[in-house]
C-alpha cells in the first residue's frame, strides 16, 4: 500500500475512533480533554486524510493557495469558531452542532493545514506558530480569570484546569521553538 493511502486510512480510522460513543463520552467528560484531545485528534485526522487528495487536485488547489495563506486563513477562521466555549458546549447537546464539529474540524482545519503547510515559507510559518503560542497564553489566562463558567456542561474548576494546561502548552511550545531556532536545524 502506498504511504499516502496508508496515512489517509489512519486519518479515517482516527476519525471513526473519535466518533465511537464510549470514546466520545470519555473524552467529552472534561472541558480540557474535549478541547485539547478531541479537537486535536479531529484536526490530526483531517491532516492525515489530506494525503488522499490526488496530486492533480492538489496542484489545482495550490494555485489558489499562494504561500498557503488561503488555507491558513480558512483553518484559522474555523478554529476561531471552535474556540468559542458556546460552540463546544452546544456540540454536547445539539445534534447539528455535533455533526458540524465532526465534519468541520477535520475538513476545514486539518485538511487545509496539511495542504498549506508545505507551501508556507518561514515567515508565514513563524507567524502562525508565534500566534499559536500567544493564543495558548491568552486563552489560558482568560480561562483562569473568567469570573463565571463559560460552559453549561462543565464546572468552573474544570475550566481553570484547562487554563493551566493551556499556559503549560504555550510554555512548552515556546521553549521548543526557541530551542529549535537557536540550536536546531531549520528548513527555511
Amino acid at each position: 500500500m502506498k504511504r499516502t493511502t496508508l496515512l489517509g486510512l489512519v486519518g479515517i480510522a482516527l476519525w471513526v475512533v473519535n466518533m465511537l460513543p464510549p470514546v466520545r463520552s470519555l473524552i467529552e467528560t472534561t472541558m480540557t480533554s474535549q478541547m485539547l484531545v478531541q479537537l486535536t485528534m479531529l484536526t490530526m485526522s483531517g491532516w492525515f486524510v489530506a494525503h488522499l487528495v490526488p496530486l492533480h487536485v492538489r496542484d489545482h488547489i495550490d494555485r489558489w493557495n499562494a504561500q498557503g495563506i488561503a488555507g491558513l486563513l480558512l483553518a484559522t477562521v474555523t478554529s476561531m469558531v471552535w474556540m468559542l466555549p458556546r460552540m463546544m458546549d452546544s456540540s454536547l447537546s445539539d445534534g447539528t452542532i455535533t455533526v458540524a464539529k465532526f465534519v468541520t474540524v477535520p475538513l476545514l482545519i486539518g485538511v487545509p493545514l496539511a495542504l498549506s503547510w508545505p507551501l508556507m515559507g518561514f515567515v508565514v510559518r513563524g507567524f502562525f506558530l508565534l500566534e499559536a503560542v500567544a493564543t495558548a497564553f491568552r486563552l489560558g489566562w482568560l480561562y483562569l480569570i473568567s469570573p463565571e463558567r463559560v460552559c453549561v456542561n462543565y464546572l468552573i474548576d474544570d475550566q481553570q484546569v484547562l487554563g493551566i494546561v493551556m499556559l503549560c502548552i504555550g510554555g512548552v511550545l515556546f521553549a521548543y521553538f526557541g530551542w529549535k531556532l537557536m540550536f536546531g536545524t531549520i528548513r527555511t
Binding site: F122, G126, M182, F183, T185, T188
Partner: peptide, 10 residues
C-alpha cells in the same frame, strides 16, 4: 531571521 538561518544554519 529566515535569511540569517538560511546562511548560518540557526
Amino acid at each position: 531571521a529566515a535569511a540569517i538561518i538560511k546562511k548560518h544554519g540557526n
